[in-house]
Design a protein around this nucleic acid. Structure first.
Length: 555
RNA sequence: GCGCCUGUAGCUCAGCUGGAUAGAGCAACGGACUUCUAAUCCGUAGGUCGCAGGUUCGAAUCCUGCCAGGCGCGCCA
């Protein structure tokens, strides 16, 4: 609809130019919008105002010239008006909206797809929680945002790979090993001093117990230095298995799990550091090796090898991001918690230093989640091991409700996640509001079958019966879906789909309460309305699938 | 002190990357189930878009400066 109208308007501009009414042939892009107020028509353009400068004419004069030259071949326009400073408002002939319905039926689960990605290989890395403890709610949000963004990008024509980066190297892994080792000693009846720096959660005790049952007590009787790494590996593997299972429960499956340790094992990190030294990008100061990130806009240089000879997290991160680009990704997206924002300049610097364009690297900073119960904060302290895990949340409120809540807000704004609210099955909790649309329509379809209603023989002319304002409103909502998808993909903002679906759901519920779909005494009308609501159902299902949320047949 | 993010109805948030009279849900109040699922709908009420300037035909949106809140600023990850 918009595109057809845009072409018509541009044609009008050329025609007016040929007649000499418009002096310049330099036409700006036609932007069509849906006015907020219905009295301003179905679609509106500000082009007359945009062109005022280049044409050196009053906007309203330009608008008049355009309208006079409109050639509405497809019969889309019922009437036009010039309003305010020079808006051109178009009132679309109601039946002109109908063809979108057959498009939806024809394209089915492909309706709304676009090709802004042009098969560009893009990688999105998310969650990437350290394997030192279970996933919590914050990871859930990152997971929902990352996974849904991946779905949307894929739907927008990108070639998407989802990756999980496992920080299975460095100090926190050592700490994990020590924690398990000490808890194991406790199990053997020894008194140990369990340091505050160790992981306090009960899951550490469980891991120690598991290891004891599996391999016997030998390992816990060894000297600490010999026991740490075996303990750490065992625990990390177990924890990763657990995270993998939790993520699957949450509907997330990664294409690849990438081990940080593998970058060391292959010698890539060392090789990179050596290469940077030769280029003068890595230098020695105060006994440590520094990377000259400040050459690339970071506020200061960063250590890659510490005085004690150990590499920092940043060292492997340079190699990791370089590796991503070497694997052929043209666009690399990291989803991080907002508390890591200070890290962005140095990774951007690293990307640039390794010879890639920092604009090809983007970070989605997901703001923190505040977990509440009945409006009151749930105490959470990672150190002490008191926290609500992602798996607890999924068990308590369900996967669909959890995902919907995570995606019901721009990732950039902090989120209150109220466990009690998430369980409510009212309008407080819009996931059910949207799913209910799907279930209601499924129910109508069941009734058609059960009552033996003969609704075959649909013909496009039946659609003429869809002429009430609720019909048109609903259809117009359906035409917006491709735009919502495109915007969600362009800006990597899944919440746009969420809000779109809530709007569509509202339009449907209104429709449902106002109009009966199945009218035994008017089969053409029944066929038309079934055609309409089935299209709605397809779009709802389609949109929910982008969010990773199920579309139930009944509720 | 510096940097990033946020400030919109009593509460939780949208606002299509500059458009016309700023929108939803919840909470409040009043209505609608012998009819396809009331997990729904309809109506009423509720606003100086943090404050002050600037940019222009036009600003919640862009720029600058303040104010308030959150988060960062390690040879931690």
């Amino acid at each position: 609809m918009k595109n057809l109208l845009k072409i018509t308007i541009l044609a009008a501009a050329s025609a007016a130019h040929k007649q000499g009414v418009l002096p310049s042939s330099d036409f700006s892009e036609v932007i069509l919008e849906e006015p907020k107020a219905e009295s301003h028509g179905d679609l509106s353009t500000n082009i007359a105002m945009q062109m005022a400068k280049t044409q050196r004419m009053a906007p309203r004069k330009i608008a008049e010239a355009l309208i006079e030259n409109l050639d509405d071949k497809d019969g889309l326009i019922e009437r036009t008006e010039i309003a305010g400073p020079g808006f051109i408002n178009f009132f679309i002939r109601p039946t002109a909206w109908h063809p979108i319905l057959s498009t939806i039926h024809k394209q089915d689960d492909k309706y709304g797809q676009c090709d802004i990605g042009k098969a560009t290989p893009i990688q999105i890395e998310f969650v990437s929680s350290n394997p030192t403890g279970p996933l919590h709610v914050g990871h859930g949000r990152g997971g929902a945002v990352g996974d849904s963004t991946a779905n949307i990008l894929s739907f927008c024509g990108y070639d998407v790979q989802k990756e999980y980066y496992i920080n299975d190297s460095g100090r926190q892994i050592q700490t994990l090993g020590i924690s398990v080792y000490l808890r194991g000693k406790e199990l053997l009846g020894k008194t140990v001093d369990f340091p505050e720096t160790c992981y306090q959660g009960d899951y550490i005790k469980d891991l120690a117990k598991e290891l004891l049952e599996k391999d016997g007590k030998d390992i816990f009787e060894k000297a600490e230095a010999d026991a740490i790494m075996p303990c750490a590996r065992f625990a990390a593997d177990k924890i990763i298995d657990g995270m993998r299972a939790d993520l699957e429960d949450f509907g997330i499956r990664f294409d690849r799990w990438f081990s940080e340790q593998s970058l060391y094992d292959s010698g890539k990190v060392d090789a990179d550091i050596r290469a940077f030294k030769e280029k003068g990008l890595v230098y020695e100061k105060d006994g440590a090796q520094w990377f000259a990130t400040s050459n690339y806009g970071d506020e200061k240089d960063r250590v890659v090898v510490r005085q004690n000879g150990q590499t920092t997290y940043f060292a492997s991160d340079i190699t990791y991001h370089k590796d991503k680009f070497e694997r052929g990704f043209r666009k690399v997206i990291d989803v991080w918690g907002a508390d890591h924002h200070g890290y962005i300049p140095r990774v951007k610097a690293a990307v640039e230093a390794t010879g890639y364009n920092p604009d090809q690297f983007d970070v989605l900073l997901v703001q923190l989640v505040n977990l509440l119960r009945a409006g009151k904060p749930v105490a959470m302290s990672t150190r002490s091991g008191e926290f609500v895990t992602l798996s607890d949340v999924i068990k308590e409120v369900g996967r669909d409700a959890a995902r919907f809540i995570f995606l019901s807000r721009h990732y950039d704004s902090p989120l209150d996640f109220d466990l009690d609210l998430a369980k409510k099955k009212t309008n407080d909790n819009p996931v059910y509001y949207v799913q209910y649309v799907h279930a209601r329509i499924a129910s109508i379809h069941r009734k058609v079958v059960n009552d033996g209603l003969n609704v075959s023989g649909f013909s496009p002319s039946d659609l003429l019966a869809l002429d009430t304002s609720e019909d048109i409103t609903l259809i117009k909502n359906l035409t917006r879906y491709p735009e919502a998808v495109k915007a969600a993909g362009t800006f990597m903002e899944p919440h746009r789909i969420t809000f779109y679906l809530m709007n569509l759901a509202a339009a449907f519920h209104t429709y449902y309460n106002r109009h009966r779909v199945l009218c035994e005494d008017d089969l053409p009308l029944t066929r038309a309305r079934l055609h309409l609501i089935t299209a709605v159902q397809k779009v709802i299902r389609n949109g929910l699938s982008l969010l990773g949320i199920s579309a139930p047949e009944s509720m």
